[in-house]
Computed example of a mutant assay.
Amino acid sequence: MKPTNKAQDDDAVFALSTEVNHKLDLHQSSAEALRLAGVYTRQSCVLDLYHGYRSDDEDTEPDEEDGRLQTVREYHENGMLKLMRTFVRRLRRDATDPTAESSYYDRVVEEKHYDPSGICRVDMHFALGQPYLYRKHYYPNNRLKSEKVFFVEDEETMRARKVGHWRTYYENGNIQSEIIYNKDGVRCGFCKRYAIDGAIEWVKDYTREQEERLQAFNAKRGNLDLTVTDAARVLGLEGDWCSHVVNRTFRSKCAPLHPDWRRTAGDKAGETWEEEQRTEAFIRLSRAREVLLKFLETHPRECSCERGGA
């Protein structure tokens, strides 16, 4: 006996609810589940080709207005192009009134600046869907002056950090400097500066120095022998504690050691830490944290946080 339409519908609803209860996947989950979860906001484009199809009559896929690009142009007094800027308008995260002009910001996609003679002096590209912003600067003779890469952390505030190869050039075309930045915006690898005739004037291997300091730190940290009682005393822990308390206390103890924290905290920092003092203090704190977490692995405790403890 074939199931009724009602039974088929019930089975479909049950299967869909079961699927949504599990972790959804953009490529593996069904369109119905993705639409129900709010991942898909557009309907599936289903066409009837039995009677043919006319491309000129295509109106099944209207574009969203929030994806429309705008281009503005400015001109010099002599009529030559001065600026060409392409952007897309986007709603701010904290916007409360979508109708207000201040609720939107311009997300730049491409921007070019020209001098009165028509030569492009600045060329910037920030493609949609990726975080890297590329910027090139040119001399009046149209030779490259600098090329830089930024990793944009926040498109709204344009907070960014340096990444990749940053190069500058002399007006004769010779390279002036080459600085490399890692994913954290910190110099790495071989960084160089050159004289105008091409001779190397300065070079530094940052990666080698960082690896040497890392090895020295790990060696000191590994040689520091602490008992569980000593480790708890280093972190200032008393009574009952769990892994959450250990990690939270470790972070709070390390905060005053960070150079950026001391610069922003001002007088609140209390003490001025020299480089070696900060390193030694961090070694003791990190070693103490490691000892306590290893102790908890072999001596599990009920989480004091869940009991309303520290």
Rank of each mutant, 00 (worst) to 15 (best):
M1C: 13
T4I: 02
A12I: 06
V13R: 07
F14D: 14
T18Y: 10
H22I: 09
S30I: 03
E32I: 09
L34T: 06
R35H: 13
L36S: 05
Y40I: 06
T41R: 07
S44V: 13
L47I: 08
D48R: 03
Y50T: 14
G52Q: 01
Y53K: 03
R54T: 12
D56L: 11
Q70H: 14
T71F: 01
V72S: 06
Y75Q: 00
H76E: 00
E77K: 00
N78F: 01
M80E: 12
M80N: 12
L83P: 02
R85P: 05
R90G: 03
R92E: 04
R93A: 14
D97K: 04
P98L: 02
A100Q: 03
S103T: 04
Y105S: 03
R107P: 00
V108R: 01
V109L: 07
E111S: 12
H113L: 14
Y114M: 00
P116E: 08
S117M: 04
R121Q: 15
D123R: 05
H125R: 11
P131E: 08
P131K: 05
Y132F: 10
H137F: 09
Y138A: 04
P140F: 01
N141S: 00
N142H: 09
R143D: 00
K145Y: 06
K145L: 02
K145D: 07
S146V: 02
K148P: 08
D154M: 02
M158R: 05
A160P: 08
V163S: 01
H165V: 15
H165D: 15
R167C: 02
R167N: 07
Y169S: 02
E178R: 09
I179S: 08
V186A: 14
R193S: 09
A195V: 13
A199T: 11
W202V: 06
W202T: 13
V203L: 07
K204M: 08
Y206D: 08
E209I: 09
E212Y: 14
A216Q: 11
A216L: 10
D225H: 14
T229D: 13
T229N: 12
D230C: 07
R233I: 13
L235S: 03
E238A: 05
G239W: 01
W241K: 01
W241E: 04
H244A: 10
V245S: 01
V245I: 04
N247E: 10
R248P: 15
T249R: 01
L257F: 10
L257N: 05
H258T: 12
A265K: 03
A265F: 02
A265N: 03
K268R: 08
A269L: 06
A269E: 07
G270H: 05
E271G: 11
T272P: 03
E275L: 06
R278V: 06
F282E: 14
F282K: 07
F282C: 11
L285F: 05
S286M: 13
L293V: 10
K294W: 13
K294I: 09
L296V: 01
T298H: 09
G309C: 00
A310F: 15
